[in-house]
Each structure stands twice: as structure tokens, then as C-alpha cells.
Design a protein around this nucleic acid. Sequence first.
DNA 1: CGATACATGTAACCGGTTACATGATTTT
DNA 2: AAAATCATGTAACCGGTTACATGTATCG
Lengths: 186, 186
Amino acid sequence: MSVGPEKSTLSLAILGLVALEPRSGYDLRKLFTTTPMGHFSSSPGAVYPALDRLEKAGLISGSTQKKNTLRPRRVYSITKRGRVTLNEIVTGPITRDDVIWRMDEIMLRFALMDDNTPGETLAGFLEGVIEQTEIHVKSLRDDYARLKEGMPITSKYAMEHGIAQYRSTLAWAKRVLKEVRKKVNS
Amino acid sequence: MSVGPEKSTLSLAILGLVALEPRSGYDLRKLFTTTPMGHFSSSPGAVYPALDRLEKAGLISGSTQKKNTLRPRRVYSITKRGRVTLNEIVTGPITRDDVIWRMDEIMLRFALMDDNTPGETLAGFLEGVIEQTEIHVKSLRDDYARLKEGMPITSKYAMEHGIAQYRSTLAWAKRVLKEVRKKVNS
DNA sequence: CGATACATGTAACCGGTTACATGATTTT
DNA sequence: AAAATCATGTAACCGGTTACATGTATCG
């Protein structure tokens, strides 16, 4: 999944947050340091350049307030193209690589769906997560069975942790899917 | 935690794997692509420079085989200093930041403890994980309680996933701790 | 008037990704 | 002899970290 020419979760998070309401770089940084959204960087050296890139890509646009001072405040809002792109990224298919390498991004995408995202879309997303995660857990279990002899115990335990994490994700996705379906049928 | 002047988990993984037995860059890359250790990069542009840096830091040393050809094979083994450093990193204290930002590294450190690591060390490590994780889960739950009103449902669900992940880690650590203690008392 | 919160940015550095380049050895 | 596998490396690029630089507004 890539935001314009980019691929970082930070850009996606920024795009999604600016879509909810116009925000400045400072607003975003504050959000990243004071909420559990804070899995993202918040350092000015990451946030401001990311805003620049998103603007250059035409996905957000900043309007400068207090134009005449040396220290203007720039508030960014999402553009039409930005909204289209965001929607494509958020609702795009779940790949196995997403599950293996980018679980954070999966959860971010889910979190960025707003309350008027159709229940079918939510369900499809969760089904994708479940499908790909089940495949992956199966292959992890195979690896485990194949490798466990001759592996230090602590490595075995560490692998069990990895598998347990995915099983927890699976349980979560199944539970949420059930709740989403219940809401669709009402 | 930093490996010499570095901080990447890739360097730590390489140091730990080279500690088990001497390996070449190619060996490491193969390991990273064919085993679930593959959460690490495996790209030549990451592995070979990392080996260079570890060697420059005096933590590993490479011996060139087939010296007279243009395409020599370099096999690296860990140095005395490397083994000391590795042990310090692996058995060092668990911080809250480790739990929040570097769970992968925590599991890597645990996996790299070998079978003659004293049971007390393993237990101490796991106790640290449990302690810090419990603190973090508590604060996540507070955030959740504080923020859940006015949050899109999908964001709420995403947060629940995060909390569930940590609870899964907690369950794992408690189980493994029990097993480790059982082994110590026998 | 000093501290603090608001607010934006840049530059050096670091390490991973991608893509490319090259050569050696083994298998078919 | 071609193909596959073994094997090492480099260069351009990208984006995050750290640290620094700077200025504004508000409050006591």
C-alpha cells in the first residue's frame, strides 16, 4: 500500500487524521505524543517533511494563517484526490505480506474507516485478515514442527509467542466480524 | 539496547547467529529468507554493511577463504568482546520503552539466550516483561476508557486489538515463567 | 520579564530497500 | 554449454532520528 509515491505508515496516519479534520503539523505531533496513536513518530523531522510530500502529491493542501508573520501556522486539509486515495488504501485487499510485515498498517487502515463505511466493507476487510492470518499461522506451525528439535528452548518459546500473537489477532478479527455482521442485520 | 554503536535488531540478530556458529553473509541471508527468523531483512544491501560495521566494532571477525580468487567467501565468527556485548544486551533490563516500541527485540533477545543461560536469568527477564507489560496494559486501558466516547467504532476495535496483543504477551510470559521455575526446582 | 506552551523547520546522520553488477561452482 | 545456485558487494534513494535553530503568544 502506498500513499502517492510513499509507503510509510506515518504518511497514511497523517492523511487519515487530516481527513477527519484540518490539522497543522503541531496538532499531529501532539496527537502522536499524547494518544496511543503514538506508535507513529511525532518528531518534527518526520512530520513536517511528510506533510510536504503529501502536499506535493496533491493529497492534502495547506493554508497559511497569519501570512505576514515570520512564523506562520499552516493548517492542512485533505483534497478530493486525497480522499479517493485514502479510501483506496484503506479498503484495498489484505495480502499475506500485509499480515506478515505490516500488521500495524492493517490496524491503522481499519481504524481509519469511519462510521459510514458500509458494514459489508468492514466485513470483507476482516474476512481478508482472517483468511490471510489463518494461512500464515498454519505455515508458522509447520515451521515450528519442523524446527523445534535442536532449537534452544528459549527460541522455541519465542516462536510460540509469535504464533500466540497471530492467534490473538485471529480471535479479535472473528469477534469483531461477528459484531459487524450483527449490526448489518439490524 | 545497542550493538556497539548501532541499535538495529538486524545487527543483534546477526551477532546472535554468528555466536551460535561461524557464518557467512550468504548463510545469514538464507537463514533470514527460509526460517521465521525472516522478520529480518536478508537484503544484501542490509546484511553485508551490517557485517562490516560489526567487524569494525570488533564484535565479530571474518576470515577469508579462497583468498586468491576474486570472489572470496568470508566467514565471520564472534570475538570475545562480541560475546560479552551480546550477553549484556540479551540479559539487560527490560524497560517500558522496550515493551512499547521494541517487542520484536525483546523476543529476539529471549530467543538468543542459549540452553546454559541460568534459569534465574530467564525468570528475571520474564518477570521484567510481565512487570512492564502490565503497567503498559493498564495505561492503554485508561486511554481506552478516556477516549472511547466519540471515537469511530473501528478505531475502538483497533485499540482493543492492541490491548489484546499485550494481554497475549502477558499470558505467554506467565506461562513460560511457570515452566522455567518448574525446571529450576528440579 | 521570564517561563512556558505554541509552532515550524532544517541538517547531519543512519540504516534499510531496490536494483544492479559481478564472478564461482554445481547441476543438467 | 546453459542454467541454477552459491556468493559478495555497491550505489541511489528514501524516510526516520537526533539535535539544533528560531520565532510567537500567553500567563503569572
